[in-house]
């Protein structure tokens, strides 16, 4: 009899604890152990970075609002997938939540 092998992680995908990208100071390894595709990995162009306006989550409105006067935050920025190379502000993954 075949058993179902679906893992519960797949049924309710969440961004991993600590964010979608774990921070690391580890340096790249050599060509025999480093995935080949990473040879040409790039730092996203910081000049194309989009600075997000300061915002807080409003429990009543169920959305973020600006700390200062101005439009709602969602109206003030439209970040595509990889806005900058800031490790403190990792970009959303176009592929969605990953475990």
């Amino acid at each position: 009899m075949l058993a179902a092998l679906a893992h519960p992680l797949e049924g309710f995908p969440l961004t991993a604890e600590g964010g979608s990208l774990p921070y690391s100071s580890e340096a790249p390894t050599g060509p025999n152990t480093r995935p080949w595709i990473l040879r040409h990995v790039q730092r996203p162009d910081a000049t194309q970075a989009i600075v997000k306006p300061a915002a807080v989550y409003d429990e009543q409105a169920q959305m973020s609002i600006s700390i200062y006067d101005g439009p709602l935050p969602y109206m003030a920025t439209h970040s595509p997938t990889v806005p900058d190379g800031n490790v403190k502000n990792p970009p959303p993954l176009d592929e969605g939540a990953k475990d």
Binding site: S25, A27, Q42, P44, L93, E95
Partner: peptide, 15 residues
């Protein structure tokens, strides 16, 4: 899968 990683204190993307 995901094109992004953080290593060596830097965010990098495999385009």
């Amino acid at each position: 899968a995901s094109p992004v990683l953080i290593e060596d204190d830097e965010l990098k993307v495999a385009y």
